[in-house]
């Protein structure tokens, strides 16, 4: 077989060809976000020529018919719903990952992997429906009244809860990999110095896995930031800056998904939606740059 191959293509040529293909594949993947970004910029140019970026970022007034395009409420909607989901899911995932990798019996860890796979495989629209049927009434009929508040249930908190649950399989899976990759000899070293198991986890395992933990948590945030359908089903979609977690909000992905293709007769509307997509793109870009910077700093130390 090898001899036949040698006859048709000399080894050196195959080698060079495969290197070329590999380079091409990598180049293509690097160019992909650039192409998407450039496309969004071009499409939002008509709006950018009419209105200043400053007012669009600061103003919360969004009424395309009057020509007011303020994105502040949408940006805040996205930021708050993401933060909320992060606060709800990250600590639980971190503690669960520590338990599952350091303490729990083998069968529990194995069955958890199965649960993670199932959770990751459920389509987001199903999470959305579940949110509408369970979380929304729960908040409207029980939680808010218990706190002396009123809400429709379609609010930031519902979005945050649904997103938190959706982010769990991704974060948990990656965090478990991070903790499993800490060498057992490192734990032995700490234990043999007289540290308790918990001290070892706190001071050695968490520290050794810090870069991985940051990467896992930022994956969860990226996931929450970009999630569309499940959020827009429960978050209320009112273009106002939310003042509490029981207020409705309108994240950027929901704005695009709800309106694209519908309101195209309004001048500049499609350009405004492209600008919303561009904003989302920039937020994710900035966020990932910040985490990369932190990871770089930690590795340097």
């Amino acid at each position: 077989m090898a001899a036949l191959q040698r006859l048709i293509l000399p080894a050196k040529l195959t080698d060079r060809l495969s290197t070329g293909w590999l380079n091409f594949a990598v180049l293509f993947l690097i160019l992909l976000p650039l192409v998407i970004g450039a496309g969004l910029v071009i499409k939002s140019l008509p709006l950018l020529e009419q209105a200043s970026i400053g007012t669009m970022l600061h103003s919360a007034e969004f009424s395309p018919q009057q020509g007011h395009f303020g994105f502040y409420a949408f940006i805040m909607g996205s930021v708050w719903v993401t933060l909320l989901s992060f606060v709800l899911s990250a600590p639980v995932c971190l503690l669960a990952a520590i338990y599952l990798t350091e303490y729990s019996p083998q069968w529990l860890t194995q069955s958890m992997y199965f649960v993670i796979d199932v959770l990751a495989g459920i389509p987001s629209v199903v999470y959305g429906v579940w949110g509408v049927l369970v979380i929304v009434p729960l908040l409207a009929d029980y939680v808010a009244p218990a706190l002396g508040l009123t809400t429709t249930g379609y609010c930031l908190l519902s979005g945050g809860i649904v997103l938190a649950i959706m982010a769990v399989p991704y974060m948990l899976n990656m965090l478990m990999e991070v903790f499993r990759s800490v060498p057992i000899e490192l734990k032995e070293a700490s234990l043999s110095l007289g540290a308790t198991y918990w001290e070892t986890i706190k001071w050695v395992v968490l520290k050794k896995g810090l870069t991985g933990i940051i990467a896992a948590l930022s994956l969860g945030i990226s996931k929450a930031l970009g999630e569309t359908i499940a959020v827009l089903m429960v978050v209320g979609n009112v273009a106002k800056v939310p003042k509490s977690v029981f207020d409705a909000a309108y994240p950027l992905p929901a704005l695009i998904a709800n309106n694209y293709g519908d309101m195209m007769s309004v001048p500049l509307y499609d350009s405004a939606l492209m600008f919303a997509a561009l904003l989302l793109f920039v937020i994710i870009l900035v966020f990932n740059s910040i985490t990369s910077f932190f990871l770089y700093r930690i590795k340097e130390q």
């Binding site: 000899e185 490192l186 032995e188 070293a189 520290k207």
Partner: peptide, 13 residues
């Protein structure tokens, strides 16, 4: 008892 293992594993600090 102090332990010295096969390969050195300095603590991440």
């Amino acid at each position: 008892m102090g332990l010295l293992s096969q390969r050195p594993f300095p603590l991440p600090m």
